[in-house]
Design a protein around this nucleic acid. Structure first.
Lengths: 341, 341
DNA sequence: TTGTACGCGTTATCAC
DNA sequence: GTGATAACGCGTACAA
C-alpha cells in the first residue's frame, strides 16, 4: 500500500532501457552486455525492486504451484510425508498449497476447486475420499500416495513385501503361532498387501496362524479397548504357546505391548511383536519395538519426480499424455528392535 | 493448454453482456437482475468456465495468501499447530504457502523472499532463527508463535502458568523433593517460563527442589543417554525420598518413565512425574503420563485472528499501523493421568 | 442496472 | 543486443 510497487517500467525509466530489457535481465541475462547487466543491477538496489511473481504467472501461465490434499496431520506418517514433499522445493522450486481434508469428500472437492482456481500445475493426493477415476477427470497432472490408484499415477509402499519381511522374521523367531491383527481394509488400497503377505508366508511355511480383522473405532479409547479384548483372547487361546504378533501399525503394536508389560512387568518370552510404519512410538515404547519402516523420504521424492515429469510434458508444444498411469513402488525396510530376537 | 481458458470476455460475448457485468456477477451479484443472473449462470456451465484467481490478484492486489515458516514437522507440536492453522481456511479463506525451515537462517530468509514475491498478505512464523526485529523490518503483517517476539505480534502459551500448575500438582502429591529437568533456554523465549514458574512455586511453598539444566544433544540416542545419566543421579541422591519430577516435555518424560519402569517393572510410589505438551506419547506411554497441555487449536485461532486484523487494517484507505506489537497468551491446561495422584 | 476504458506487472512476438 | 506492442484475465472508476 502507501507507496506503490517498483515495476519494470520504473527500472526501465531509471536506466533508460525498455521493459523488455529489464525482463531479459531476469530471464536471459546473457543476452545483455555485462556492462548493462551492471547498470540494471544497480538500479534494482537503488529503487529497492521486489519481484512480483503473480504478474509473471499471468503473463507466462506458469504458477509453479502444486496442490496437496492430505487427510490429517495428526498421524506422524502424514506429517512426515508432507515434510518430505515440502522439502523437494529445494530441488524443483515448486511451491505447495496445502489443504487438510479430514476425510470429508465434499470439503476436499471444494479444496480442489480452489486449487484449480489458483492454476496449480499439479496435485499430490494422499486423502482417500475421492475415487481415482474422479481425480483423473480433472485432467491435470496428479500423483496419489498410498491409496486406491487405478486411474492415477501413484507411489506406494510395497506393503506386501513389508508383510513378508515381518512375517518371515516372526517365523525365524520360532513362534508356535503367528497372528496378524488388522482392520477390514479394501483389497483396492495398497495396505491390503499387509494381510496378503502375512497369509502367503504363513501358508508357504505351513505355519499355524490366525488373521484377526476388527473394527477399532475412531477414538484412542475405543481402539485401546478393542485391543484389550483381543489381548484377552490371545492369552486364553494360545496360553503357553509362543505368539508372533504382527500388528497393522505401531500405535496398535504399542497398545498391545503396554498391555503385556503392564500384566507381566516385562515382555515374556512367549511373545514376539512387530508393528508397521517405524513411527516415533515404536522407538519410544517401553520396549523398543520391531517394525517395518516406510521410506517416506524416497516415496516423496519419487512422487514429485513423477509429478514433475507430467507437468513438464504439459509445457511442451505437443504434449504426449501418458497412455497408462505409472505406478511406482518403494520397498520398506525391516527395523529389528527388542520385541523380536 | 490445447484449448485456451474461457474468460469473462467469452462469457460476455455468449450472453451479450459486457465483461464488467460478468465480473459483477461474481463480486456483487445483487446488482444484477435475477433474470440476468440466471442467464450468466447458464452460460457458465455451457462454456465450462473455470475461475482464474491469479488474474484477480493482479487486478485487485489481494492474494489471500499467508506464508508459514515452520521449523519442522517432526515434532507433533509443530504438525498439530500447522494442522490447526490450515483449518482456519474455513473461517477466513486464506490459503497457506508452507515452508519448512529446518532452523537454517539463510534458507528461511530465502523462503521469505519467495513468499514476498508471491505477494502474501501476511506471515506466521514458528521458526526461531530470524530475530523478531528483522522480521518486523519486512513491514508486512506478522504473527509469531512461541518464540522470541519483542518486535512482532505473537501468541504464546502461558508457560509460566503451566509450570505453576505442574509444580503445584507435584506439591499436592506430597513429594519430598521437586526436580525440574530442562535445557538451557534463553529467558527471551516463552518456554523459559517453565523454569521460572517451577522455581517460584518451589520457593513460595518452601519446597526442597533442584533445577537440572542440561544439553540433550540432537539425536534420540544422545537425549536418551543424557536422561539415563540424570536418572542414575536421582536414584542415588534422593534414594528413599519421594521425587516429584517435572520434565520439560513429554518425550523426555517418557524416556525417564521407561527407565523407571524397566528398572522396577512399574512406577514405584516414590516417583511422581509430569511432562509438558500433551503430545501423543504422554497418553501412549506405558503408564499414561500427566502433562501440561497446550491449547494448540486456540493458539492457532488467536494467531490467525491477530493476523487477519492486521491484514484488514492494511486494506483500508488510511491504515493505522499498530503502535506496539500485540502479545496474546493462552493458558495451558493440566492433564492429570496416572503418573501423579 | 449496465457499459467503456484503462490499469495491474510481467512475458512473448516481432521488428530493428 | 535492444525496443515497441500486444497479450495474460480480471477489477474498477466513471459514464450512461
Amino acid at each position: 500500500m502507501g507507496k506503490k510497487n517498483v515495476t519494470f517500467a520504473d527500472i526501465a525509466r531509471y536506466t533508460n532501457f525498455s521493459k523488455t530489457t529489464i525482463s531479459r535481465y531476469f530471464n536471459n541475462p546473457d543476452s545483455l552486455t555485462l556492462e548493462n547487466q551492471e547498470k540494471i543491477a544497480e538500479a534494482l538496489v537503488a529503487l529497492d525492486y521486489k519481484e512480483n511473481k503473480v504478474a509473471r504467472i499471468l503473463a507466462n501461465g506458469k504458477t509453479e504451484f502444486v496442490g496437496i490434499i492430505i487427510p490429517n496431520l495428526y498421524l506422524h506418517y502424514y506429517s512426515q510425508m508432507l515434510n518430505q514433499i515440502l522439502s523437494t522445493y529445494e530441488t524443483y522450486g515448486y511451491k505447495f498449497l496445502v489443504f487438510v481434508g479430514n476425510s470429508k469428500k465434499d470439503v476436499e472437492k471444494k479444496y480442489i476447486q480452489e486449487l484449480l482456481a489458483y492454476k496449480i500445475e499439479g496435485m499430490i493426493i494422499l486423502s482417500h475420499t475421492i475415487p481415482s477415476e474422479e481425480l483423473a477427470s480433472y485432467n491435470i497432472p496428479i500423483v496419489t500416495i498410498e491409496r486406491e490408484d487405478q486411474h492415477t499415477c501413484s507411489v506406494n509402499t510395497d506393503n506386501y513385501m513389508g508383510a513378508v519381511q515381518a512375517t518371515s522374521l516372526l517365523c525365524k523367531n520360532e513362534c508356535d503361532v503367528l497372528i496378524h491383527i488388522n482392520s477390514h481394509v479394501s483389497p483396492q488400497v495398497p495396505a491390503y498387501g499387509r494381510i496378503q503377505g502375512f497369509l502367503d508366508i504363513c501358508k508357504e511355511r505351513r505355519m499355524a496362524h490366525e488373521l484377526i480383522l476388527s473394527e477399532f473405532g475412531h477414538s484412542y479409547q475405543d481402539t485401546f479397548e478393542c485391543i484389550q479384548e483381543i489381548f484377552r483372547t490371545l492369552e486364553e487361546k494360545y496360553a503357553g504357546k509362543r505368539k508372533g504378533v504382527f500388528m497393522a501399525n505401531d500405535t496398535h503394536a504399542n497398545m498391545l505391548l503396554n498391555l503385556i508389560v503392564r500384566k507381566y512387568g516385562r515382555l515374556p518370552d512367549d511373545y514376539r511383536l512387530i508393528g508397521f510404519d517405524d513411527s516415533p512410538i515404536s522407538s519410544q515404547a517401553i520396549i523398543p519395538t520391531s517394525t517395518v519402516g516406510q521410506q517416506i523420504d524416497k516415496i516423496a521424492r519419487e512422487a514429485m519426480e513423477l509429478l514433475v515429469m507430467q507437468m513438464n510434458e504439459r509445457k511442451k508444444r505437443r504434449p504426449v499424455p501418458l497412455k497408462e498411469p505409472v505406478h511406482k513402488v518403494v520397498t520398506p525396510v525391516l527395523v529389528r528392535r527388542e520385541t523380536t530376537s
